[in-house]
Write a protein that binds this DNA or RNA. Sequence first.
DNA 1: GGACCGTTATTTGTCTGACTATTAGAACCA
DNA 2: TGGTTCTAATAGTCAGACAAATAACGGTCC
Lengths: 248, 248
Amino acid sequence: MAKARGEEGGGEVEREEASSGRLHGAIARSLGAAIVSGKHQPGDVLTNEIEASERLQVSRSAYREAIRILAAKGLVESRPKTGTRVSPRARWRLLDPEVLSWFFESEPSESFLQELYELRMIVEPAAAALAAKRRDEGQLERMRAALVTMQHETLVTEAGQAADRDFHDAVLEATANGPLFTLSSSIGAAVRWTTIFKQRGRGLARDPMPEHWKVFDAIAAGRKDQAREAMERLVTLALEDTRASLKA
Amino acid sequence: MAKARGEEGGGEVEREEASSGRLHGAIARSLGAAIVSGKHQPGDVLTNEIEASERLQVSRSAYREAIRILAAKGLVESRPKTGTRVSPRARWRLLDPEVLSWFFESEPSESFLQELYELRMIVEPAAAALAAKRRDEGQLERMRAALVTMQHETLVTEAGQAADRDFHDAVLEATANGPLFTLSSSIGAAVRWTTIFKQRGRGLARDPMPEHWKVFDAIAAGRKDQAREAMERLVTLALEDTRASLKA
DNA sequence: GGACCGTTATTTGTCTGACTATTAGAACCA
DNA sequence: TGGTTCTAATAGTCAGACAAATAACGGTCC
């Protein structure tokens, strides 16, 4: 079996990338990406474990562990005799960070981005309001540091973009609401792609700092309603910029 | 090995319940519940696979598949040499339906319920507003049917409670927003426990139907702002009832 | 002809035991 | 003291067998 490595043209799971470094993780990632990108439609039956693991040149146990991961995220469902089939989209854990990252391995559809955006518009202003009432010094400092970095680096560098995400993350964290905080990866994904699209239509890149500082100031001052409104404005502006870039 | 069943005092995974009928699912559930309930704290190292599977009287592969499930939900992280340890709470997928159900296997803390409640208050009014603009006839019919059932059965019966959840679920679905819709299980969990607490302090059970019909009417009429406000009132009233019951 | 019921084949599920890869921490050396 | 090598503990992967579940088929009886 080991000597057969690399033969057989098609198949062969991608192993690079430190992230899903384990074999089962790599298989899950590869299969998961194929599912969310529509290469396997809901209702489709995957080839059985024996054949699938042979084609991928991996042991059945590694393949099974990958399937367990996908099942845990609601992407597939296994039953004896019937096999493993792709679950209806309604069961997918679309907000799971890994599922999201699989979405973004290939370019996500515009409508999906739109939906994430809507989520942002619902969650972030409310989160900012809560954060204004609950933030502690450390969180405030983290927000400030993120904005300073963002200002220095601008959104052109990876560090600047990371700082942007970190700011939004800190706001979510400051809500002191666990379930709400878990949305930060989804929000972060939306933020990241907003930036990517903005960068593409790189006409007149509006300075995004003023809105950000207004949100920060309101949260620092403990002004709930002001924080909500400032965040609403921030998200709205980001959407407008993205829309403008798409047309260009 | 088979003959050793039932010896050894502690251990033995719970296998009843049709849901997590598979062995790996049952193990995941049992371990997952132990983690979210705090029996294993973040940072704790689980006993290694060999010992753990021996103690549970299951094969190492079944145990490993269970761990993959937990890892997929962010509850644990495995590395060679170090072992498998419980991840920091911030990584837990608190909105995953299964994780949530593990939370509710033992009575959830009041603060956790409070947090879910806050999420409801953020998401549901906004969802109602979107639903008012996007709902189709089928969804409207589903909402109506749910409310009719709820009215007949009242919240005392399981069928009535299911109808309540179904109503809220239909509203989320009508937003035509996939990511948002995945929150329905979390919302549903919050709804369920609100009802349970209300039932306990069963003094004067206020009729919950008027608020519900107002939400429905606004969504049916396509009145976005009215729908948002009606849902806001509904959630607020539910919270008040729950608060009142807790004092009693 | 149609409903019921056992049979069978297919697929996932579970078990066992061996070997490999990774890596934290100790021992060692410069 | 600081870096390097070694070692042992642990998860990771593999192979092959057997068990359990169940959808589909086929036969029986009304």
